[in-house]
């Protein structure tokens, strides 16, 4: 069964970009407004899932040659190691720090170590969610046939 999905494909091309941008916005704005690592990650994952649903797995994997498995592992590694790092500065496990800096373009900006931790969480979320969906569809290609 072949469905004519030209409209879907065309729309998705644009929409995915918007969703990805939005996800990064959500991730960065999480410190002061709704958003953050989880939500940013989830939205980004849903963008990828949308791509995989619209096009087939092979096409997308060619275009985005990222191993989502490794991505989730790297995410966990980042969040755990950013949690461990403070020990070496004599701070308790999982201490977070923040400070205000004057950056050339952005002006007075707040930089926080939470962002590293949250980035790890976000990567984990993206990696795992996409990986689950991919595994299922891949598995079926292999075993069902």
């Amino acid at each position: 069964m072949k469905i004519n999905d030209v409209i879907l494909k065309t729309v998705v091309k644009g929409v995915v970009l918007i969703i990805l941008t939005f996800s990064i916005y959500l991730f960065l704005s999480g410190h002061h407004t709704p958003g953050g690592g989880f939500i940013g990650g989830l939205v980004m994952a849903s963008a990828f899932v949308l791509l995989f649903l619209t096009y087939d797995v092979e096409t997308v994997s060619e275009g985005i040659p990222i191993s989502f498995k490794k991505m989730s592992a790297v995410g966990v590694l980042i969040s755990v190691s950013s949690a461990t790092a403070p020990i070496f500065w004599g701070e308790p496990f999982l201490s977070q720090n923040f400070g205000y800096f004057d950056l050339p373009i952005f002006g007075k900006t707040e930089l926080a170590t939470v962002t590293i931790f949250e980035a790890g969480i976000a990567l984990t979320v993206v990696g795992v969610v996409v990986n689950i969906i991919l595994s299922i569809s891949e598995g079926s290609n292999k075993w069902k046939a």
Binding site: G30, H31, G37, Q96, V114
Partner: peptide, 12 residues
Amino acid sequence: AGGRNIVNAILG
């Protein structure tokens, strides 16, 4: 914690 979003400050 330097964050205005309380929920995320709790989480992070």
